[in-house]
Design a protein around this nucleic acid. Structure first.
Length: 516
RNA sequence: GGCUGGGUAGCUCAGCUGGUUAGAGCACGGCACUCAUAAUGCCGGGGUCGGCGGUUCAAGUCCGCCCCCAGCUACCA
């Protein structure tokens, strides 16, 4: 690979839970970006993984009667299974329990100490022995018996102070604001950028970055009673992967990352703490953090207690992988919250995929198969109408590339589907079935224009729906080596033998209600 | 409370620095076509552009006030 590097990451997922739609969504967005960039000739590194430390894991493992490592081995596997199920294409899967990660964390820590940005202090707060966790003042209330309890759990809390190392975040307020100012693309979407800036403008407190209340984590160098704060540990994974602290590692070429994809809940860690840590360690911050929204389920907030958690595996088993991938990125402007409605998903599947795109391929290819001897038909002189359609399809490459560069997946798909609609209009206008009787040569040209349009469109569909696109390109006999974007202008060659056409996007029909 | 973003056809949304009869997709109604996955294409109905007031020759598009919705307002990831 000689192209410019492109490093995209998902958050590392916390292994106290099984994967749900949120995990699938974040990773899907990264997968489409990674696939797009690879096809576009970039030198891509796509990283995902699991965050396996912390008190919650320690407790969950104990509850399961397992050692923490064995426990995380097991749960981490469920995230790797999801990668296969969703056809994601990460270049690596990192785990915070890897040795190299301990080394990276400790190296970063020492660098922060050397820079004078870490000091030993005291962490104090309202501690619940039962919950084994701290609460801030506002999360507690004093009951009628004059005892203070955690509002959420009802457990009694007491004022506890423990020694803790602190990161001098307060000293970074101005430098962070300056950084945001100079790098307007650092946080997306715009509304999140405003939130972060306003948060930082409010002033920053130093950050407690170690705990002594548990042991499942990365020990602080030189003071192993202290375990590193989970976020310092977790965020470091992005540079662990690149070989930190060994900047001669070949993978170091990927740092700084082009994009950290995150859910909107963890934007602060990525947009405030992380760049501060990195700048303090004299490392470049990532170039961009995109915070996407959350899904609701048929209008309802998703929560475990409501029992309406969306299982991506069930969705894929019911509607098919590519339709689900398409729906998730098409239905909602990327960055906004979205509502997952089965009706809407079926509407997209049947309307956009089966009727518009799948049927376009099928109607064109079946005419070719029946009338043109199952080869790419001859291309005769082109009319204005032909050129109009070809130019629209040809302009798609640059337009879609621009949208993907902004992570505007929905807009990229809208652009592609506009050309699909144009192509369907063109079929009706040209009526190749009528030309068959009057002007077979013209019919052949029309079919060539259509096949070529489908080829261009489908090349761009590849990152979103890899399997389906591959099947369509197979039907156009596009060689595997001609499916990268470098071959976007490489037209179909008349006379090339074509396989028998087969529908790629079957309509979804509701399973018949059980007869009673 | 403060800050930010938003309230445009039944639904989801476009509408950049103000300028001809406010748009798209879906849904709905009618027509055409028959190559195709009963798919496709064409036409159509439907909106006091949250409310009030203001600036202007002219305002979804600018200003003010008000109403409603969402997010943020730090150490659970």
């Amino acid at each position: 690979m000689s192209g410019r590097s492109y490093y995209v990451t998902t958050p590392i997922y916390y292994v106290n839970d099984v994967p749900h739609i949120g995990h699938a969504y974040t990773t899907l967005a990264c997968d489409v970006l990674a696939r797009f960039m690879r096809l576009d000739g970039r030198d891509v590194h796509f990283l995902t993984g699991t965050d396996e430390h912390g008190q919650k894991i320690e407790k969950a493992a104990a509850a399961a009667g397992m050692a923490p490592q064995a426990f995380t081995d097991k749960v981490s596997q469920s995230f790797r299974d999801l990668l296969v199920k969703m056809n994601y294409s990460p270049d690596n899967f990192i785990r915070t329990t890897e040795k190299r990660h301990y080394e990276a964390c400790q190296a970063l820590w020492e660098k922060l100490v050397a820079a004078g940005d870490i000091y030993l202090g005291k962490y104090a707060g309202w501690y619940s022995v039962r919950d084994e966790t701290y609460f801030v003042e506002g999360e507690t209330e004093v009951g009628p018996d004059n005892k203070r309890r955690a509002t959420s759990t009802g457990a009694e809390v007491e004022w506890v102070e423990e020694p803790s190392y602190f990161f001098k975040l307060s000293a970074w307020t101005d430098r962070l604001l300056e950084f945001y100012e100079k790098n307007p693309r650092f946080i997306a979407p715009e509304s999140r950028r405003n939130e972060v800036i306003s948060f930082v403008k409010g002033g920053l407190q130093d950050l407690s970055v170690s705990r002594t209340s548990f042991s499942w984590g990365v020990p602080v160098p030189g003071d192993p009673k202290h375990i590193m704060y989970v976020w310092l540990d977790a965020l470091t994974n992005y540079i662990t992967e690149c070989g930190y602290p060994d900047t001669t590692n070949p993978l170091w070429r990927f740092w700084p990352a082009d994009l950290h994809m995150v859910g909107k809940d963890i934007i602060r860690f990525h947009c405030v703490f992380w760049p501060a840590f990195l700048m303090a360690a004299d490392l470049a911050p990532p170039q961009r953090v995109f915070a996407h929204g959350w899904w609701t389920n048929e209008g309802q907030k998703i929560s475990k207690s409501l029992g309406n958690v969306i299982d991506p595996v069930e969705l894929v088993d019911t509607y098919g992988l590519d339709p689900v991938r398409y729906f998730l990125l098409r239905e909602v402007p990327f960055g906004n919250d979205g509502d997952l409605q089965r009706r809407a998903l079926i509407g997209r599947l049947n309307g956009d995929l089966a009727n518009a795109y799948g049927n376009l391929c099928q109607r064109v290819l079946s005419i070719v198969a029946k009338n043109c001897g199952s080869v790419v038909p001859p291309k005769g002189p082109l009319t204005d109408d032909d050129n109009a359609l070809l130019n629209r399809a040809g302009g798609l490459m640059a337009a879609v590339r621009a949208e993907i560069g902004e992570q505007a997946f929905h807009r990229a798909l809208i652009l592609i589907w506009e050309v699909i609609a144009d192509a369907n209009r063109y079929v009706d206008a040209q009526a190749p079935w009528a030309l068959a009787k009057t002007d077979p040569a013209r019919r052949d040209t029309v079919l060539w224009v259509l096949a070529e349009t489908i080829r261009r469109v489908t090349l761009l569909v590849q990152p979103f729906m890899p399997d389906s696109a591959a099947r369509i390109l197979d039907q156009l006999a596009v060689a595997p080596e001609h499916r990268a974007f470098a071959a976007f202008d490489r037209e179909l060659v008349s006379g090339t033998a074509l396989p028998k056409p087969q529908g790629v996007f079957p309509r979804y029909v509701e399973p018949a209600k059980a007869a009673s």
